[in-house]
Simulated scan of single mutants.
Amino acid sequence: MSNGSTFPPHRRLRGTLLIVLAAVVAAGLGGWLAWRSPGGDGGGPPRAGQPGPTESAAKGADGKDSGKGKRDGEPGGKGSGASPGDGSGGDSGGDSGKGDPHGSLKGKVVVIDPGHNPNNRDHGQEIARPVDIGNERKECDTTGTSTNGGYAEASFTLDVARRARTLLQEQGAKVVFTQDGDRPYGPCVDERAAIGNKAHADAALSIHADGSGAGNRGFHVILPARVTSGPADTSTIVAPSRRLGERLAGRFIAATGSAPSNYIGGGTGLDVRSDLGGLNLSKVPKVFIECGNMRDPKDAAQLTDAQWRQKAARGITEGITDFLTG
């Protein structure tokens, strides 16, 4: 034969068919083994748009981020659980002031005045010294109030102030404190106002909690009245301070869920006063906020809760931000 084969034509055809069949079987077996390999899910390779194994591990069964891997204190984390009165501001409450872009307060100066001082109680004679607030003379400072359980207003104000400072600094603001628990007492109310004036603050806020009777609940913001007497002249700050107070009240309600005071302000959450040296002597827009009533058990439960204090700090931060950027 011309091809040199010794097999008849029909046997050569059968041999060729057997070789082709063997190749088909081998290819099919290889594909099945790859389909069943440990890296697969039993349904073949992921289709376009499906998450691969790494992405799937980071999501829950419903495809939403599970939040795992966040450290305590980060947004979405549990926080450190700062105990009432430690002033650490350590518990983020799972909330870090979302909604305002970083840098929105760049170039702005905010003065925060944490009401009273934890050490005032040891300096009764010094804080009783009268100072001129323009239309009268009042004591340098007071000890502030406390809850029935002994959580001091001065500890509360420092904690909330420190939390607000962190959030404001994240927005790019320069934050100045009147005191940070680093003074033996005070400062006196006239010096508290002077600190804001010297800093040429774009906004100033004094943080407090009230000491009214049980059943009196809610927060209120204190606005400066028009006072022109002696060293006091609030004529240029009354209007901008009201705008600051209104924005602060609105944001505080939204952040904390608290209602405006049911005993001051006629349900508006705003109160105008002419007897506070920190307002009378201010030359920059300034308000006070009484975050709740420490003598009411329901309000006290909020004020002593670290997560609620973080919400209060966020409401304060957003109110100041609205005022400064609006």
Rank of each mutant, 00 (worst) to 15 (best):
I127N: 02
A61T: 15
A193P: 04
K286I: 04
M1R: 13
I289T: 07
Q302K: 13
G67N: 11
A239Y: 08
D113E: 03
S80I: 08
L270V: 03
D141A: 15
T236Q: 10
S235T: 14
P114N: 09
P8M: 05
G89A: 07
S155I: 04
Y263F: 11
A152I: 00
I289L: 04
S146W: 02
S241C: 08
G79P: 06
S235P: 03
T325F: 12
P231D: 05
A173Q: 04
W32N: 03
G211D: 07
D271N: 09
D296C: 11
C140H: 09
S88R: 09
E74I: 09
T145M: 06
V284D: 00
T157L: 12
L281E: 00
N135S: 14
L167R: 02
I222L: 06
V221E: 00
A23G: 10
R243F: 07
L158P: 01
Q50P: 01
P285K: 14
L18G: 08
V110W: 01
S274A: 15
F323I: 01
I127L: 06
D122A: 15
I112G: 00
D159T: 06
L303Y: 03
I195K: 14
L21D: 07
P260W: 11
R309G: 05
D296Q: 14
H220A: 09
A61M: 07
A82T: 11
R129G: 14
Q171I: 06
R183S: 12
V221F: 01
N262I: 09
Y151G: 07
G211H: 06
L279F: 13
P297D: 09
V110A: 04
G87R: 04
G196H: 07
A201C: 04
Q50N: 03
L276F: 10
A301D: 08
D182N: 10
L21E: 12
A255Y: 04
G44T: 13
N293G: 10
P118C: 14
L18E: 02
I19P: 01
A255D: 00
E136L: 14
D65V: 15
G186C: 15
F7V: 07
G277M: 07
G87F: 02
R295V: 04
I253H: 10
G60P: 08
D122K: 11
E126H: 13
W32Q: 05
V25M: 08
A194S: 07
Q50M: 13
A161M: 09
R295N: 12
G134N: 05
G267S: 06
D210C: 02
P53N: 10
F288I: 14
K70H: 09
D190F: 07
P224E: 13
L223H: 03
I207K: 05
L248R: 00
A255K: 00
R251Y: 06
W32T: 05
G60S: 14
A300S: 04
